[in-house]
Design a binder for these strands. Structure first.
Lengths: 217, 217
DNA sequence: CGGTATCCACTACGATACTG
DNA sequence: CAGTATCGTAGTGGATACCG
């Protein structure tokens, strides 16, 4: 017995979209990812098999279109934005903030930061941020006027800034749980020239849903 | 590997609420069900074990409160309404209407009809509707001013109306896919005194999301 | 890079029986 | 009525290896 046997659109939509990974893939596409491995970078724990399967299912459903190696949302897919936003809003509002900071991957955070950088506020002289968070892989972020990008290796410029400490502290700030100063009190370290360090948090518009107040007991 | 490893509230909310059955249980509670078996009547295919488990999980999450044998939504639970509505809206708009009429259970439809009856439009002299749809269990609906209820056996009044034909036709009307006249062309039959038959469809405010236009190709 | 094919482990789920 | 306990299975999804 696989179906719910219900006429109601809630059940039918859940049968269709409720599978593991599915809505995360939609989120990646809503955020602008287009290529197979680009999507994967935002969802590191999904297997290639699974991603391929889900993308095919979404294509058959009419949510995704696949042409010239790129995946795009159809109108039906774009219309999933309210649903995804409702999920995020509820989660920000009611899920406990402190927990869940365990067992997180770094890359999705960095990709989100890259997406949310104020490109026009970045410094004109390129700055490279070395990101060495406890227990996480080493990463670099290039920040210069008009461009923000993440790489595994230093792109060639001098490392002007160094970020260290626990990922949980970075996430707490990014997600809107605490101010940057408090994230530093949680162990996050940002080192480099004083003016750049002071300016750095302002270079980013935090997580899209960072503004939603927590109501969790 | 069970988690998504994502900081994002979408993933966290989905880990929490995305399991099979969970949102259907929330829907039942949002619609006003309170007792264990009352919830089950709206979700006939869930096992008792599963329902008990899910309710416990929801209680631990702070979405449901259990006292004096009744289940209630907490504020966090009531705040799931926008999410459930977004799911239903997307489903009504984009999922194919024709299909999915196979393999449906009758009872959830009848319960929804009972909930959506205009109690003040029902006739003052009680009318019993005998519901004998092809391949479905026999049911009765008592309709009288101020009360609508569903039972497995005739509650004692004469059967003034008889409903027959395929469940798919009833559902198509209820869900807003077709007008009542067209449902009859799909094989739905309603027999009884002419004035009651004519009035009957007007006694109900159809499915909550019946008004949402389908955009499906 | 962008997938597909195959295999295996696990666990989520349903059926059944039992309790207060 | 309102559950809990136990157990067997079907199906999901991850790992691995392989293609174009």
């Amino acid at each position: 017995m696989t179906g719910y046997g219900q006429f109601c659109a809630i059940a039918r939509a859940h049968e269709t979209l409720g599978g593991r990974w599915t809505l995360l893939i939609v989120r990646e596409l809503l955020c602008g990812s287009r290529r197979f491995n680009e999507i994967r970078r935002g969802i590191p724990r999904i297997s290639r098999t699974m991603l391929a399967e889900r993308l095919q299912a979404l294509t058959h459903l009419g949510v995704v279109r696949h042409e010239t190696g790129e995946y795009h949302l159809t109108p039906a897919g774009q219309d999933l934005m309210p649903l995804v936003a409702a999920l995020a809003t509820w989660g920000q509002r009611w899920l406990p903030r402190h927990a869940a900071a365990e067992d997180l991957d770094l890359d999705p955070v960095l990709i989100d930061m890259q997406r949310q950088a104020h490109l026009d506020l970045l410094p004109t002289t390129p700055a490279v941020l070395r990101i060495a968070l406890r227990g996480q892989p080493l990463r670099f972020m290039l920040l210069k006027r008009g461009e923000a990008s993440v790489c595994d290796h230093n792109p060639g410029f001098p490392e002007t800034l160094r970020l260290g400490g626990p990922l949980a502290a970075l996430v707490a700030w990014w997600r809107g749980d605490v101010a940057f100063a408090q994230a530093r009190r949680m162990g996050l370290t940002l080192e480099g020239p004083r003016p750049l360090v002071r300016a750095w948090p302002g270079w980013f518009e935090r997580y899209r849903f960072a503004g939603i107040r927590s109501e969790a007991a």
